[in-house]
């Protein structure tokens, strides 16, 4: 058995979830600790560690469904989603998409969007610090190049669109929330931006025109492309987004 063969056999053993497997053939049995028991300690530790990692990133989802349901959902996610990063903080990247396809959560139609919001919060928390727009730099742009200006949102920002009042749901699902815990789904959907300024993460509601403009910016459209497609008042809206800190940089697309 080579080292590589041993390590490859662990993948198969982990995916099978069976205590008796090809990997345990390489393990020396002990009086009190059989090869199968030894393997199962690792299996449970890996599953437990990843579940705990997910519950740290998605605390509102956990509060909504309760610990048992959350752990079962996490276990299903773990069984179908390998981790391809040494950073366990990256592991929840596909959790929101998974929840959408997780049959036992089908009656909680908003849950996937709440997970999306929590993931955006997590990314904002650990993302690059937001800059302030350098207005002086705008003066250096030649007049004929102004149509090719491309604006940027803070790199730590995410835009979320939901059919449900997820900010309200998220708010009442916080550990320290005190107050009315009733949310009516008929409150309707919302457009949100999640971003961090300084050390604080903000979740803010956007108007539809703000949302449309930020989405166009996020897609990398130039100012002339936006002007052609956008029906709102750019001269009012762009300074508004800038003063909110949601537009923080620009460059001239060559």
């Amino acid at each position: 058995m080579s080292l590589k063969e041993l390590q490859e056999s662990f993948i198969k053993a982990f995916d099978s979830g069976q205590e008796k497997n090809q990997f345990t053939q390489f393990v020396k049995a002990k009086h009190l600790l059989s090869a199968e028991k030894g393997f199962s300690i690792y299996l449970n530790s890996i599953r437990g560690g990843l579940t705990s990692g997910l519950s740290i990133v998605f605390p509102a989802c956990k509060n909504i469904v309760g610990e048992d349901f959350f752990n079962k959902m996490a276990l299903s996610y773990i069984q179908e989603t390998p981790s391809y990063s040494p950073d366990v903080g990256e592991y929840g990247k596909y959790f929101s998409e998974f929840i959408k396809r997780f049959p036992p959560a089908s009656h909680l139609s908003y849950l996937s969007d709440v997970a999306k919001l929590e993931w955006a919060w997590h990314k904002a928390f650990n993302g690059l610090d937001a800059k302030s727009l350098d207005f002086a730099k705008l003066q250096d742009i030649d007049v004929e190049e102004t149509n090719n200006i491309q604006f940027f949102m803070p790199e730590n920002a995410s835009l979320i669109e939901s059919e449900y009042p997820i900010l309200h749901i998220w708010t009442i699902s916080q550990d320290d929330y005190q107050g009315d815990e009733v949310v009516h789904l008929e409150e309707g959907g919302e457009y949100l931006i999640v971003w961090r300024k300084g050390l604080e993460v903000f979740i803010e509601r956007l108007t539809e025109p703000q949302w449309q403009l930020l989405q166009a910016i996020q897609m990398g459209k130039t100012i002339s492309e936006i002007a052609n497609e956008f029906s709102g008042d750019l001269t009012q809206l762009l300074p508004e987004l800038t003063s909110c800190g949601w537009v923080t940089d620009f460059e001239v697309e060559s």
Binding site: L3, Q7, I11, F26, G53, P86, V88
Partner: peptide, 25 residues
């Protein structure tokens, strides 16, 4: 220890076999 293979991470401190091959590696 080892914790990954084929780019896949287990986020666990898995023991190595104590062999010459593992030592040199």
């Amino acid at each position: 220890c080892w914790s990954s293979i084929h780019g896949r991470y287990f986020h666990e401190l898995l023991p190595l076999p104590y062999t010459e091959e593992a030592l040199n590696h």
